[in-house]
Design a protein around this nucleic acid. Structure first.
Lengths: 350, 350
DNA sequence: CTGAAAGCGCTTACAG
DNA sequence: CTGAAAGCGCTTACAG
């Protein structure tokens, strides 16, 4: 009768009720501070229940609470690529850091959907036995996301927030205003006199890549500039460098920090001085700054802040009393610019 | 009647049953492949249900499953310090990487208990509303853990595995055999002729710190060696370095990689060459190796592997058909030694 | 072979 | 002020 296949008969509200000599419902009421309103529980009873609660160290079964229809303060985190391998670390770690801090602040736990099977390098959100429902809401992280999948999520009533701007309609996000920052940085270069510019873009850039490209184009629009946009997958730096040499720009704009560093090494090796012979701008920052990094003139996206903001947006979406206005559902935050040492005026040729 | 305060009336087994023209129980049976044994469901019915299941993209509510008593493939992860801030990153990241990979392999999600309030730098495991119960089992990560708390966990029937050796009885763990590795490394130094040795220990070392100290002492036992053990909190490197200068060892053993790097900088600044004037051994590795790191002779704990092993031990503990033997519940794995460039024979003085 | 029913532990109207 | 009861969505004996 008292046996159980699971743990040594864990404690329930019914047991607490027995111990305190009240009904199980009363325990629930006390536990959830619903003791005001219609149901006023006398101080004395309340204290008795509270005492037993303390003594036993009881906590309500989250699964049961959830089933009974209350939120359980769990924020799902779905990363489109595995989050902790070293390759992804630079991208995800600062985000997760901000997410963790804000979740802690709000008293939320984080459910990381590692079970989603990886197909062709990308995690599949909807798989049999997915535990999406367990979370009150879900944060979506990744460079690229399938628009149809996002639409399905929203249609099925999941509360989600994407980290990073999304083209897909109806999906709330917090993103970084890469377009403006890129444009501002490029204008600075134009003012210095650069008129021959090459942009080494990241092949798998997603929306944020598109934004950076847009900023680049906006800055150059109407200026008489020789410009080439060259996509790279970061895998064949040698070939990329050859393309750079061939075009011979005075300014090289590189999307990815790691590609930027590799290209600069190539330049040095080829006897081309950066920045005197070739200025460089990088549209991002390595997450872990090591002392010996080149001090690139670059964009410094506030990723930790972004993660935190995504959590708080999601939590407001989930709240009853603080729902965000329509305009707050899709916002961009400013991207800092770091005045590094790799952007100078081009050498003047006769 | 069809309204709901939550999502747009999410789909349930009852709905699936209606659609397929069977009973709700049959849907559950098909879903869980319990269609053999006593209840044989005809292929035709089964297919019909399966078809509807596919079409609707139905997945069972994990909270309800959990409440009904089935495991839900969620592994809880409790970190005694916040996991993602930069300070903790070196310690937690490789562990999480291994944990993530193995969880993915097993089809498990990870529930990170970020909601646990931080008191004096340490997260409190048992707080009101903790969601420990939601996980099938819990992984415990951290340098130091409260023995009483661990005992409570086990007593309350939680299935847990600690990452790192624990003194507390009855608690399963996977740890690293720091004692043997430290001993082996020190013996190597002794063979080279070192007889004046200083050990800069980490103040908050926990069990693994104790193991390293034990290995150190075992190596020196019976040898005629001048030895000093000096604890540091890593905060006052200047003072630590003064202590080193005063004792003037030929070999300095440093527990923490970051302290090791800082001390070496001090040595260089003071004109003391490493390793000719002072050999150094570090009893750990920085998680992120950057090119310009000193190539310390050191221990290289396989942390990612450790994380993965902890997950698989936990999953075996949770399984019905593959429960680990008593002896497998508490195991240590070997720690690699890296032959760096900072350990050489001491200079011979007259 | 399949359906009706109990039960998992909670929350929350609804009666007393 | 408090208790009895319904219901959340499942799983799993137990009857037909």
């Amino acid at each position: 009768m008292t046996t159980s296949k699971t743990s040594p008969r864990r404690i329930t509200q019914r047991r607490i009720a027995e111990l305190a000599g009240v009904s199980q419902a009363t325990v629930s009421l006390v536990l959830n501070d619903k003791a005001d309103g219609a149901a006023r529980i006398p101080e004395e009873t309340r204290d008795r229940v509270l005492k037993v609660l303390k003594e036993t160290g009881y906590v309500a079964d989250p699964a049961a609470r959830r089933l009974a229809g209350v939120g359980n303060k769990i924020i799902g985190v779905f990363t489109y690529e595995p989050a902790f391998p070293t390759e992804s670390l630079d991208f995800y770690t600062p985000l997760l850091s901000g997410i963790e801090a804000e979740a802690e602040e709000l008293g939320c736990d984080l459910l990381i959907f590692t079970s989603a099977p990886v197909v062709e390098g990308t995690r599949q959100l909807f798989h049999q036995h997915n535990r999406l429902r367990l979370a009150d809401g879900v944060l979506l992280l990744g460079r690229e996301m399938d628009a149809d999948e996002l639409a399905t999520l929203v249609r099925d009533g999941y509360r989600v927030v994407a980290v990073g701007r999304r083209d897909a309609p109806d999906i709330p996000y917090v993103g970084i205003d890469y377009a403006s920052a890129t444009e501002a940085l490029l204008r600075r270069a134009l003012e210095l006199g650069h008129r021959r510019i090459m942009f080494l873009t990241d092949a798998r850039g997603g929306e944020s890549g598109a934004d950076r490209l847009r900023g680049y184009e906006r800055a150059l629009d109407g200026e008489s500039v020789q410009s080439v946009v060259h996509p790279t997958d970061g895998g064949r730096i040698g070939a990329d460098w050859l393309a750079v040499r061939e075009f011979a720009p005075t300014l090289l704009v590189v999307e990815s920090p790691s590609v930027g560093a590799a290209i600069r090494d190539q330049a040095i090796a080829d006897g081309i001085d950066v920045p005197t012979a070739l200025s460089m701008i990088v549209l991002g920052s390595p997450s872990r700054v090591s002392e010996n990094d080149v001090d690139f003139t670059r964009l410094a996206p506030p990723r930790a802040e972004l993660g935190g903001l995504a959590v708080s947006l999601l939590s407001r979406i989930l709240s009853d009393d603080d729902e965000p206005a329509e305009s707050e559902l899709r916002t961009l935050i400013d991207c800092a610019i770091v005045d590094g040492s790799t952007l100078v005026a081009p050498e003047v040729h006769a």
